[in-house]
Computed example of a mutant assay.
Amino acid sequence: MQLPTADGTLYTYKPSKGSTFVIPDRPFQSRIAFSAAHVVSDPFANTDPLNNAQIDWEGTLAYRHHLWSLGLGVAEAMDTAQRGMGLNWEMAKELILRSVAEAKSVNGRIACGAGTDHLLPGKEVTIENCIQAYEEQCEFVESAGGQIILMASRALAACAKGPEDYERVYNHILQKVSKPVILHWLGDMFDPALTGYWGHTDLDQAMDVCLRVIQANADKVDGIKISLLDEEKEILMRRKLPEGVKMYTGDDFNYARLIQGDELGHSHALLGIFDAIAPAASAALHTLDEGDLQTYHKLLEKTVPLSRHIFQAPTYAYKTGIVFMAYLNGHQSHFRMIGGAEGSRSLIHLSELFVLADQAGLLTDPDLAVKRMKLVTELSGIV
Rank of each mutant, 00 (worst) to 15 (best):
T195S: 12
G265L: 02
Q215H: 08
K233M: 15
V221F: 08
D204P: 11
F140H: 10
I226V: 09
L211G: 02
L174P: 09
I226M: 07
I182Y: 11
Y170F: 15
A160H: 10
V141E: 08
K240E: 12
S153A: 03
W185E: 06
G244R: 06
L186C: 15
L236Q: 15
L203I: 15
Q175G: 15
I148C: 03
D251I: 00
S267H: 12
I259F: 02
E234D: 08
S153W: 00
C210R: 10
S153R: 04
K246L: 14
S178W: 07
L211E: 02
A157Y: 09
E231L: 06
M237T: 10
K220P: 01
A193T: 15
V213W: 05
L229D: 11
G146I: 00
L241D: 05
Y197M: 14
T249A: 11
I148P: 04
L211Q: 03
Y197S: 13
V209N: 02
H200Y: 14
N254M: 01
L241P: 12
L264G: 10
L264A: 09
S267Y: 06
S153I: 09
T249K: 06
Q147E: 10
A218I: 05
L150R: 01
M237R: 07
L174T: 09
A256C: 00
Q260N: 04
Y166C: 06
V245A: 06
C210Y: 04
G162L: 09
K233P: 07
D204L: 14
E263G: 01
M151T: 06
G146L: 07
D219E: 15
N254G: 02
L258V: 01
E164C: 10
G265Y: 03
F253P: 05
I148N: 03
I173D: 04
V181L: 10
M151Q: 15
I214Q: 13
H266W: 13
V181P: 05
R212G: 04
P192I: 10
E263T: 08
I149L: 14
N254L: 10
E243N: 14
C210I: 05
L174E: 08
W185P: 05
L203F: 14
L258M: 04
Y248Q: 01
I173G: 05
D202S: 12
S153V: 00
D165G: 09
L150A: 07
A155E: 15
P163N: 11
N217H: 10
Q260E: 13
W185G: 04
V169L: 06
P242L: 02
H172Q: 13
L150Y: 00
L241T: 07
A256P: 03
R238F: 04
P180D: 13
I235A: 15
K246N: 15
Q175H: 13
Q175W: 10
E232Q: 14
G261K: 01
P180Y: 12
M237N: 07
Y166V: 00
L174D: 08
